[in-house]
Design a protein around this nucleic acid. Structure first.
Length: 563
DNA sequence: GTCAAGACTTGGAAGAATATTT
DNA sequence: AAATATTCTTCCAAGTCTTGAC
């Protein structure tokens, strides 16, 4: 427990000692074998090394949908040409005349070969990977050996954005030591750059938590090497996050009363803020920062909603004042929802939309800075995202309370947990694409259930038969047989029940992604307390990685914890 | 105050490892 | 033992919010 209770540093100091080996650099490009050809306009063409490398990036992605998109193709071709020699540029002028088929096949085969490797070979590869992990995967932070989250530089390749990203297909350059800034403590063993290279910079900044950083060339933003979630530093931060959310619980009623009042404010700015905050609170929308146009996919959050993203229905399906939301949120995940809102909200929305074009901002007098300033004023540390954390965690707690039946067996209780988890994921709009094999595996499961049902019926008859025989004979052997058959029946019934639960869970879960809420929104102490209260082993809910991440919560939480 | 850069959290997909079935 | 399904891990993009420069 003590590990989580050491006093914390003031004034933004994150550590006193930080020592590490620097990032692990991905191996250099390996040229294609002589017999693997690239063809242009039907004729084999030997490419220069740099050109060939970029060609392999595209070739590897050939059976991915990305490569069918025009933007992807254009961006790729544009960047590829920049890598070409002038002779190659003279020849290769049309992507449609490029044939990467052989290169593609080479990598597919190589992959297969790797999978088919004998056990010992695989073992050897694993040991090599472990050695690298051992060497580069850890650092020393204030005397503790801590796991690093991402200790490898990102390999070069083609940028894959999400959704309709204008930069998809662009060339992501190889990261060299000369691009990398190292951060560590002055008196530590400073990491050595790879032979013949030097770092961009070595700095000693203990007000930040990253160990190394570089600027990536697509969006020109920084990438960092940071600690694993199991580290003390990250764990404490996580804990802190949930403590802020718990403080919101005490003032949320006041805040709700306040924004209701503000719906009628004389200032349009305040009204917009109050309506936006209502959405953020009720629907768990993200804040919605402004984004640079044309640099990323067109996605929005609350403050950046446009008129075209909502439709107002005074009446719909027997409900009043319905707002129909339809927009792309983070990662271009669609948010679609029809919500009956309070009348003043509806009236305000009508007002905000008046005389505007579909592409105009709905909240044209509002941005996240203004909103967060206001929230900060209402509670120390309060920002828009805290509402998501708060509402997610409180929902889990309430749902667990409502759904858990102490009489249920473990499988039943786990189903309840999953359902509570699911309620949160739905609130936060955490979706996944339906797994490719979903329909098939569902069918297989259904067939198993049917077979099991039959078995149960048969076992029932067996029991009856045995009982009849016992009635007739009254002998001990027949009595034992009755017991035996009953036992079998019971076991089969339990198996059937478990399968039914599994099927229900699977069906309800097909389009919902539970991971994100579990990892980022649900105070783990709620889960730990629930497990303790109902005698569920924590491993049934959290796998090893998750237990490491939530070690702080597992350490400190009793069964009576309340969020 | 404004704007861009910086730091850190959150996000689903893909790939790897493991479990289960055939 | 191979094939298939499921779970776990890695990857890296895309958000939020803070900080720093002017």
């Amino acid at each position: 427990c003590s590990r989580w209770e050491e006093e914390k540093n003031e004034d933004g100091v994150k550590w006193m000692q930080l020592e590490h080996r620097g990032p692990y650099f991905v191996p250099p490009y390996e040229p294609l074998p002589k017999d693997v050809h690239f063809y242009y306009d039907g004729k084999p063409l030997k490419l220069s090394l740099a050109t060939e490398e970029v060609a392999t990036f595209y070739a590897k992605m050939l059976d991915h949908e990305y490569t069918t998109k025009e933007i992807f193709q254009n961006n790729f071709f544009h960047d590829w040409r920049k890598e070409m020699t002038s002779e190659e540029q003279e020849i290769i002028k049309d992507l449609d005349k490029c044939d990467f088929g052989e290169i593609h096949k080479y990598f597919v085969d190589k992959n297969e070969a790797r999978k088919a490797l004998p056990k010992e070979e695989k073992q050897k590869l694993k040991e090599e990977a472990d050695k690298i992990q051992e060497e580069y995967g850890y650092c020393i932070l204030d005397g503790h050996r801590e796991k690093i989250g991402n200790f490898k530089t990102e390999p070069p390749g083609l940028f894959r954005g999400r959704g309709e990203h204008p930069k998809m297909g662009m060339l992501k350059k190889r990261i060299m030591p000369e691009d990398v800034i190292i951060n560590c403590s002055k008196d530590s063993k400073i990491p050595k750059p790879p032979e013949g290279h030097k770092w961009k910079e070595v700095r000693f900044d203990n007000t930040v938590t990253w160990l190394a950083s570089w600027t990536e060339n697509i969006q020109n933003t920084l990438k960092y090497i940071m600690l694993n979630p199991s580290s003390k530093l990250k764990g404490e931060k996580d804990w802190q996050k949930y403590e802020v959310a718990r403080r919101l619980k005490d003032v949320v009623h006041t805040i709700r009363a306040q924004y209701r009042k503000d719906w009628k404010s004389k200032e349009i700015k305040k009204r917009q803020r109050a309506v936006a905050l209502y959405f953020i609170d009720k629907l768990a929308l993200r804040a919605g920062n402004e984004k640079e146009e044309g640099e990323t996919a067109d996605t929005v959050g609350c403050c950046s909603l446009r008129v075209e993203h909502i439709q107002l229905h005074p009446q719909l399906d027997g409900q009043e004042h319905v707002v129909e939301f339809d927009f792309l949120g983070k990662d271009s995940i669609r948010y679609y929802n029809k919500v009956s809102v309070e009348k003043p909200v509806f009236k305000n929305l009508q007002l905000f939309m008046k005389n505007k074009d579909p592409t105009d901002d709905l909240f044209d007098h509002l941005n996240t800075t203004f909103l967060n300033k206001h929230l900060q004023h209402l509670m120390d540390g309060l920002t828009a995202k805290v509402f998501r954390t708060y509402n997610a965690s409180i929902t889990l707690q309430e749902q667990l309370k409502a759904l858990t039946n102490p009489e249920d067996n473990i499988a039943g209780k786990l189903l309840s947990y999953n359902r509570a988890n699911r309620a949160v994921a739905i609130l936060c709009n955490h979706q996944r694409s339906i797994p490719k094999t979903f329909a098939k595996s569902m069918q297989v499961l259904q067939e198993k259930i049917d077979a099991k049902k039959k078995q149960v019926e048969e076992a029932q008859e067996e029991v009856k038969k045995a009982e009849d025989e016992f009635k007739d004979t009254k002998d001990a052997k027949a009595e034992a047989n009755v017991e035996k058959k009953k036992k079998l029946l019971k076991r089969l019934e339990e198996q059937l029940a478990k399968m039914n639960i599994q099927a229900t869970d699977k069906e309800e879960n097909k389009q919902i992604a539970l991971g994100t809420s579990k990892l980022n929104y649900l105070d783990p102490r709620i889960t730990v307390a629930w497990c303790k209260k109902f005698g569920i082993p924590i491993e049934r809910i959290y796998n090893k990685t998750q237990r490491e991440k939530f070690a702080w919560a597992i350490d400190m939480t009793g069964e009576d914890f309340e969020f």
